[in-house]
Design a protein around this nucleic acid. Structure first.
Lengths: 183, 183
DNA sequence: TTGACGTGAGAACGTGCGTTCTCCTAGGGT
DNA sequence: ACCCTAGGAGAACGCACGTTCTCACGTCAA
């Protein structure tokens, strides 16, 4: 089996299991079973579990922001694009396997013990915030609007994760619209 | 040593360690060392670690909401009271040992494996939201304002935890003020 | 054909930790 | 003085899991 294929399969399994059941309750043996990649191979590709976790978060970060940006790009109007962020969140919250924000969860689980995970969470959140800032700038709006929009989105992710409802996305979107008009 | 005293000391140690280092990386032996309560006693008071975790979250929930309410009560004006919530958050974020919201962290760490913890997180968040709803009603405002205020507060907690900054509280407060005027 | 090498399956090893057990000491009632 | 009980210190047990090792097998070069 090709090395890059094995890597992708390992990461597929890692993402499914780590996101679904948490990092600590998933063993390397579970990854092996779910991916079909042998333990020996796994440890060649990722010398320790922590590096598999980092690779999982990194790949998910790229994909997550890509998916969001693709959805936003489908809208022409720059104001609509900002609101489209919350529409996309609603769709995400409604996915069958949705279990909250992977980075917030990782922070809760590993933040106290793994500085590298904390750095990855920070990077991801900063990238998301920068993306919102860009949308705000493109719409010709006051840059100060970025912060509240970001906080509404974060609050919606957390609340949707804990309650299992998609409602927070609509609530955040409604609040965002008020802020956009008032700003 | 009195049984109730031992219980309090155990919970003091549990809260300090669980909140500061996460639940899974703290062993019962660490609790014993930090509390001075012997293992035997610990297991008399809490038949399993999970029950100690539950007791920790429960006691913290009561105290957290008490501290918040006490701060809010110091304000007369009903509108000021709503904004005072965010002032209190800022003070909390600035505490030396602040490491994010204990319940959001617990959800990230144990949410996938412990339904009882999930229920406690939900209960805590619902209680906080209900409290905000009460403040909104007391101020004679539209009940629909509760949701965005709650989301802003949640977003601020998460962001302050991840970034280690108190800034999100001020940002959330500013956004709340805009919403209160616009609503 | 042979031998070096990579690989997979799974055993093995070491450690950490939740939980229980052993043993010993110290009171307190008779 | 003599038990009897509660409690503390810490060893012991069982298990889970990260990581490494063993061994057998297949593959390809010479």
């Amino acid at each position: 089996m090709d090395s890059t294929v094995a890597r992708e399969q390992a990461l597929d399994a890692a993402e499914r299991l780590f996101y679904g059941r948490g990092v600590q309750s998933v063993g390397m043996d579970d990854i092996r079973g779910a991916s079909g990649v042998s333990l020996k191979r796994l440890y060649q590709l990722f010398p320790a579990k922590e590096q598999l976790v980092e690779a999982y978060l990194e790949r998910r970060d790229v994909r997550w922001r890509q998916r969001l940006a693709e959805h936003v790009r489908r809208h022409e109007d720059t104001l609509e694009r900002l609101l489209a962020v919350f529409d996309w969140l609603e769709g995400w919250f409604g996915e069958a396997d949705f279990r909250g924000c992977a980075w917030i969860n990782a922070y809760g689980e590993l933040g106290a013990t793994s500085p590298r995970v904390v750095a990855q969470v920070r990077d991801h959140k900063r990238a998301f915030r920068d993306y919102l800032a860009q949308l705000v700038a493109d719409a010709g709006l006051d840059a100060a609007l970025t912060a509240p929009l970001f906080l509404l989105a974060e609050g919606a992710m957390v609340t949707a994760g804990v309650t299992g409802s998609t409602e927070p996305a609509a609530e955040a979107r409604a609040a965002a619209r008020v802020l956009l008009r008032a700003g």
